[in-house]
Nucleic acid binder design. Sequence first.
DNA 1: GTTAAGATCTGCT
DNA 2: GCAGATCTTAACG
Length: 192
Amino acid sequence: MQIESDFFLQDTELVAKKLIGHYLCRETDEGLLSGIIVETEAYLSTNDPACHASRGKTRRNATMFGPPGRAYVYFIYGNYYCFNVVTGPVGSGEAVLIRAVQPVEGKKLMIKRRGNKYSEKNLTSGPGKLCQAFAIDKHFDGHHLRDKPLYLLSNDGTAEIGTVKSTPRIGLSVAKDKLLRFIAEGNEYLSR
DNA sequence: GTTAAGATCTGCT
DNA sequence: GCAGATCTTAACG
């Protein structure tokens, strides 16, 4: 099912929590890829120094200040991309980082895109990995996530995700204490 | 123009 | 479990 247009206007923490169990879909020339979102993190505009938007608008984070429901993709550590969904009204500068998905369709293609080196559990269990597996790069920055070839679908009841739990965020040097990471508890495809 | 740090991953020990 | 790879971005001179 398609996501309601005002879904991303809710509180960012709530959106991050509710996105667990939603589907991420990617259409490529070689076939359809899809997965169930099992791990997210919320990045807030207020009282959150770990958020890229916390020091004002820059060229990199401009998309975060734009309309909600779009992709914010950025390059990190010289090798990897991170994929976020912009939330909140225009100008708020908040987003949800998609950290891990459970592969559903196109596993074979994901394995190929990851270099034919890894098993199913090591394809999309981290922000850099899932961008590689789903062929998400910088040109999707600003892309509307209801449009092909990269879009989100709400959980129609087929995705079984169990209990959603909140934990501290991963990989930060500041604001590590905040419980803004959300996971499908016990899922085998989490980043850790 | 120059530099330090980063929402990570992989390979080796 | 830990350090290295690797380069863009943003802050500073």
